[in-house]
């Protein structure tokens, strides 16, 4: 079985079978889009909510940011034959690993979640599963054959979202 690893800032997709995995979600957010009819799965590992003006590489790696990443993920799903009206999203991550620092009123993780929710909403894509926020890291896996998404954290039982 193919298992594709989605590194920070990347977007990968599979059709019919295989597993999409992303490791080391802290304040980052793993997002999956899935069309159960054609069995198309797309996974992104989003780093920050909004593209920085100083980053001119976003065109090459749109998956770094929520505002460029979600449109790029939708496009990739449609290219593989998915239909927008059938796409369903699941979201994991957005934690704050160093909560005592209180650097921002809203942590980067939460800002990521807010931005991703907004951009998915623009496409009217429902979020069917969530394991978000909190203070711990996560690993996310999407089994493309059946659309099942599991989330693993250190010292916890894997959960299905």
């Amino acid at each position: 079985m193919v298992e594709l690893f989605v590194n920070l800032g990347q977007i990968h997709s599979l059709k019919s079978k295989g597993i999409l995995t992303t490791i080391g979600l802290g304040s980052c957010v793993g997002v999956t889009l899935y069309d159960s009819v054609v069995k198309v799965g797309v996974m992104g590992h989003i780093f920050l909510p909004k593209r920085r003006g100083s980053d001119n590489s976003a065109a090459a790696a749109p998956g770094k940011y929520a505002d460029t990443g979600i449109p790029a993920m939708v496009k990739e799903a449609l290219n593989l034959g998915a239909q927008k009206s059938r796409l369903q999203a699941k979201v994991a991550g957005g934690a704050n690993l160093f909560p005592n620092l209180h650097l921002d009123a809203i942590s980067i993780g939460e800002q990521n979640i807010i931005a991703i929710t907004k951009h998915l909403d623009n496409y009217k894509i429902p979020i069917l599963g969530r394991d978000i926020l909190g203070n711990h890291g996560r690993k996310m896996r999407l089994t493309v054959e059946n659309g099942i998404v599991t989330v693993t954290a250190i010292g916890k039982e894997p959960i299905q979202i």
């Binding site: 080391g24 979600l25 802290g26 780093f47 996560r138």
Partner: peptide, 9 residues
């Protein structure tokens, strides 16, 4: 935590 999650944060 996982090294990846800490480093990413």
């Amino acid at each position: 935590d996982m090294a990846g999650a800490i480093w990413q944060s």
